[in-house]
Design a protein around this nucleic acid. Structure first.
Lengths: 275, 275
DNA sequence: TCAAAAGTGTTGAGTCTACACCCATGT
DNA sequence: ACATGGGTGTAGACTCAACACTTTTGA
């Protein structure tokens, strides 16, 4: 430490002569995989409504892949961190503040973008239906696509659909020395860039991180019924649970309120808060 | 999808006119937090040797911070992915192939490097003592520093030491909407750049990821005793375990061999393999 | 002989799962 | 009245921490 401090004036000289522009620099972007639980309407009397997990795609307004559906995202600016960039992009694109924003990984394959060397930092974002959108949304066409992500062995099938649009991606789960789950897209051209791979990685992270229920609350309003809570878990994990055991398991994470939901044609449900 | 395909020739025109150099681009580096279990020698008769967790630092040969200890790492090259860059750097610096290489996160604070806008992708690497170093090591001074990382409440203390050199960093654990554990360095100048923050994040990830024992095997040779296995877990997690229960818990992850370790002054220990 | 580590057995507390069962409601 | 979801109780299986105990060795 001492011999470094004695050289501070040399260091100043070095820095004033240093020109960062002389070195190779890639372009850096963020892409955001924004998740939302969409409530499907149907019979409301007696029956609870069903949920589905959806992800936000935007229609590209510019080349490359103009007109194709892709993840929202954009270039990193000079005066912001990567996290701030992700936050700004999702806010511009959806008009809402994301409840959470979690790093998914860095995607830097040489051929991932036809414009050249562009590195993407992917973020997982959760958008709550219970937070009102702000004004000032970008005028891009954005749609929530219902998502399914199933597997047989190492082969995964990602399906994004909204009305008549269906995007299907087949992926293979890889084991690498990089430990974290990684996927290889088997059928190219189904989703632009490497966005299929990014979404698959993000949904895997979402499922892994949901195990301690921490992320689950981000999909819920401040006060919720345990059935709503359970339904979000089931939707995300694509499993089904028994209510009796679920409510006991989560009891340590929630706190009763003295409010109830009535008018549903069955016994009123108590509202809970996060503990 | 269709209206995008009909525009392929427009897209070609766009791409041929596109000049990536016109846009802001940051410099991109990787920094590697390489961990190794160091066996401390002492009495060998009857007593098992003690382990300690250590991390690799290199003495900076260039400005800025010339002469200070820092994480190994370097700039991303044009023809490699971020992962390949991390792999190349750690190989050049230690002369060994890392057994694993796991992404820790992206560090992009505006003021993290005095040279200008430089984004670092941090990787956690595990170096096994049981893999022989290759030739062709860079001629930089590199040393393994013993690591301790304790906390009281939200305040964490990171200590790196080797012989007479002691580097101490005090950090605060943060709760953010970015979910993943993040730290803020409280006493600047103790470690150059934001390397204190990076190491704290990496050791937290190492401990979290060790819970399923997956990473633990990377510290071990192909065949090992259950006591050696337990000792690695204890060293990393900074806890102490009872052998009887440990061996039952890990039995599902390992497989017996018919070999034994003898000559230790007590009952021979059976060697196990990863299942 | 004996200290140290290797390894097995057991007990009691706690947790998890499946399922039976009652409660409260609005049409 | 009754179907539906809300909610509690409980028996048996399973898991886990603590600790007593036996085995094997080399100086």
């Amino acid at each position: 430490m001492e011999d470094y401090k004695s050289q501070l004036s040399d260091e100043k000289a070095f820095l004033s002569g240093y020109n960062i522009e002389e070195y190779d620099r890639p372009s850096v972007t963020t892409d955001i995989v924004a998740f939302r639980i969409r409530t499907e309407d149907g019979d409301t009397y007696r029956h609870n409504s069903k949920n589905s997990l959806s992800v936000l795609l935007v229609k590209r307004g510019e080349y490359p892949f103009k007109g194709a559906w892709a993840l929202p995202g954009g270039f990193l600016r000079k005066t912001e961190t990567v996290e701030e960039c992700a936050y700004r992009e999702i806010k511009e694109e959806t008009g809402v503040l994301p409840v959470s924003l979690m790093p998914v990984g860095v995607f830097s394959q040489l051929d991932r973008d036809p414009r050249g060397r562009i590195i993407s930092n992917a973020y997982l974002s959760i958008i709550s239906d219970f937070i009102k959108p702000e004004a000032g949304t970008d005028a891009v066409e954005a749609r929530w696509f219902n998502l399914s992500f199933d597997y047989e062995g190492d082969i995964y099938n990602l399906k994004l659909s909204d009305d008549d649009i269906v995007i299907s991606v087949k992926l293979k789960r890889l084991k690498t020395i990089f430990k974290k789950t990684d996927f290889e897209v088997m059928d190219k051209n189904s989703l632009v860039f490497d966005h299929g791979r990014i979404i698959a990685t993000a949904i895997t992270l979402l499922r892994d991180s949901s195990k301690d229920y921490d992320l689950i609350f981000d999909f819920l309003p401040e006060k919720f019924t345990l059935t709503a809570f359970q339904s979000v878990v089931e939707t995300i994990m694509n499993i089904s649970l028994t209510p009796a055991n679920f409510r006991r398991k989560v009891s340590e994470f929630v706190e009763e309120t003295d409010e109830f939901v009535t008018g549903a044609g069955h016994r009123p449900a108590k509202l809970f808060k996060r503990k």
